[in-house]
Design a protein around this nucleic acid. Structure first.
Length: 584
RNA sequence: GCGCCCGUAGUGAAGUUGGCCUAUCACGCCUCCCUGUCACGGAGGAGAUCGCCGGUUCGAAUCCGGUCGGGCGCGCCA
């Protein structure tokens, strides 16, 4: 019977065992050979001795990563020979016979070396070797446990797991699709779903009360450190007869807080997850996905400077903008060149420059202090409760620019001063996203998140709104340490509102019927109100396991160019295959 | 598509104010020695036209231009 190495062998002293595994390391003393044998449970030392091992010469041929089977006897080591660095260090296996199951060439990377981890491209090219590392093995097992926790949670709450098609339809809004040509229907295409959005809404019409799925989603957009290229996984869910997003939030919140505390062993910054509106998020943190592990709020100073002598600030306010500031504790420690670097960041975000005050030796030191009155300086300090050693950074510009600049600086300062505790997780629900948004590239009003949300106030809200951009949707994101991990909404289940929401953007009913025919049809036949959301599972797992690159938590990720360097995909295909599809 | 950074033996690094570079070190690999190692040890050896192309120069791993590949960010991601 085959035994696992780390788990079984220590319990089998003086017994004969058959072991299989990889040669992890060899120490050849000529007349005596030690092999560390490795399997998925760990290592055990094999001893090859001419006196006890048949065909001892074969052991001399062993090299790293050979796959072998040995028969031998587990023996307790003498006290002086024990190795307390190894869980199996109190025993060893005296080998009687050896069988080489497979040989290995010298490895192109050294996966087991901590000092010289190969660059990521090589690790991905030889991912099957990289996966032999203990860290990656642990990740894979932990990820399976993560999925089980999630499934158990959903099942307990009577969600039904339903899979939806991978060959689906191109969706008009949103990310770039992956297209799949149809062989049977020449000239027509399937698209891989960016999310099972429409299918899950149709399941609601189909009488499913609560649906969930660990869904594969496909998007052809450039990746980031926290965003995979191509395919990724979402916990997708939807609930019928729900008209308020708060219901969804309350059902799902304990899953995430439980994953943080019980699964990842981390501490929640706040025991209950706060709700802030999109508007509050922008105005207080300069971001719709703020990291709430640290405070550093954006504070409005416009009333202080509206009549100021300092033209830069005053003009921003009288021009319709505003002046805001953040307090950076211990900011006086920043060097001139560091401040220059932060100034460059501010400029990249659209600021004209970066004004600041340093509170040092009981006085305010700053290149701009001389333009400000004593009252102004006092008022600013008091409002920010700025103390000795603090620095105050300003932005004076339009509403959008001020919040974008200070929001960026807020996270940059936090990174510089290590304000985010890595053992802590801050969750927040950002609610009430705008239904429409201004699309600067195309100079027109567009859907904010997606066209499937229910505007607050229903069809009247769209018809009566003087400013379309003021319409709010019952739409919400969950944010974890500054990462968007969930997005959801109360859906629009009413065809009339659907037509109206598109009409407000200038689309006629024909357009809507063409793009969303299936949904519109279905909604005619007694569609229940429904709401739901989708969690980005790879990204959550990344945060829970302290990784800062999402590819570290995926077995076979594609690289930043969308290439699988191990499988060499994408690749050319046989012309015969193409001609079957009607291609050239 | 744009910006910033990176590219030196199989791997990880050093060298990058031009010449002490006939490119250094460690790990790995090969040969030989070694019966208690566990980062085994010892002796020896192979292995790099410094991503590629072009330019400047008496002279380029080093400077310049281009190009390819990679990372991060922006755009994009309903």
């Amino acid at each position: 019977m085959n035994r696992t190495l780390s788990r079984d062998t220590p319990t089998l002293v003086n017994e004969s065992v058959t072991l299989k595994g990889w040669v992890h390391n060899r120490r050849d003393h000529g007349g005596l050979i030690f092999i560390d044998l490795r399997d998925h449970t760990g290592l055990v030392q094999l001893v090859f001795n001419p006196a006890t091992t048949q065909d001892f010469a074969l052991a001399g041929e062993l090299r790293d990563e050979f796959v072998i089977e040995v028969n031998g006897k587990v023996v307790a080591r003498d006290e002086t020979l024990k190795n307390d660095k190894l869980p199996t260090g109190t025993i060893e296996v005296v080998v009687q016979s050896l069988r080489i199951l497979n040989r290995s060439e010298a490895l192109p990377i050294q996966p087991f070396s901590d000092e010289q981890q190969a660059n990521e491209e090589l690790r991905l090219r030889y991912r099957y070797l990289d996966l032999r590392r203990e860290k990656m093995q642990t990740m894979l097992k932990k990820r399976a446990a993560y999925y089980k926790t999630i499934r158990d949670y959903m099942e307990e709450r009577e969600f039904t797991e339903i899979t939806t098609p991978i060959l689906a339809n191109s969706s008009p809004e949103g990310a770039r699709d992956f297209l799949v040509p149809s062989r049977v229907h020449e000239g027509k295409y399937y698209a891989l779903p960016q999310a099972p959005q429409q299918f899950k809404q149709l399941l609601m019409v189909g009488g499913v009360s609560r649906y969930y799925q660990i869904a594969t989603c496909f998007r052809d957009e450039d990746p980031r450190a926290d965003r995979l290229y191509g395919d990724f996984y979402q916990l997708d869910l939807e609930m019928a007869f729900v008209e308020d997003g708060e219901t969804v939030r309350q059902i799902m919140e304990p899953l995430i807080t439980g994953l943080v505390t019980d699964f990842a062993g981390k501490r929640l910054s706040q025991p209950s997850v706060p709700r802030i509106t999109y508007r509050e998020a922008i105005e207080q943190y300069g971001s719709d996905k703020p990291d709430l592990r640290y405070d550093m709020k954006l504070v409005d100073m416009s009333d202080i400077y509206v009549n100021s002598e300092f033209g830069v600030f005053k003009n921003a306010i009288t021009g319709g903008g505003l002046v805001k500031a953040i307090r950076v504790q211990n900011g006086v420690s920043l060097s001139r060149s560091q401040i220059d670097a932060f100034t460059d960041i501010a400029k990249r975000e659209g600021a004209g420059g970066l004004a600041y005050l340093m509170i040092e030796d009981g006085e305010v030191k700053s290149p701009i202090a001389k333009f400000m009155s004593a009252d102004e300086l006092t008022a600013v300090r008091e409002r920010l409760q700025a103390n000795e050693g603090d620095a105050i950074f300003f932005a004076a510009d339009t509403y959008e620019t001020v919040h974008r600049v200070l929001g960026k600086l807020r996270s940059e300062f936090a990174a510089h001063f290590n304000l985010a505790n890595p053992d802590e997780v801050a969750l927040v629900w950002v609610i009430d996203f705008p239904f429409y948004e201004w699309n600067e590239t195309e100079k027109r009003v567009d859907f904010g998140h997606n066209p499937f949300s229910m505007p607050r106030g229903g069809v009247e809200a769209i018809r009566l709104a003087e400013d379309k951009l003021s319409i709010v949707a019952d739409q919400y994101d969950m944010v974890m340490n500054g990462y968007e991990i969930c997005s959801g909404a109360v859906r629009n289940h009413n065809p009339e509102i659907m037509y109206e929401s598109f009409a407000a953007l200038g689309y006629d009913s024909t357009y809507v019927e063409e793009k969303f025919g299936a949904m519109l049809n279905a909604f005619k036949f007694g569609a229940p109100p429904h709401a739901g959301c989708a969690y980005g599972l790879d990204r959550i797992f990344m945060v829970l396991t302290d990784e800062d690159n999402i590819r570290e938590v995926v077995a076979f990720p594609k690289n930043g160019s969308g290439v699988d360097v191990m499988m060499n995909s994408p690749s050319h295909v046989d012309p015969a295959q193409l001609s079957e599809l009607g291609g050239k």
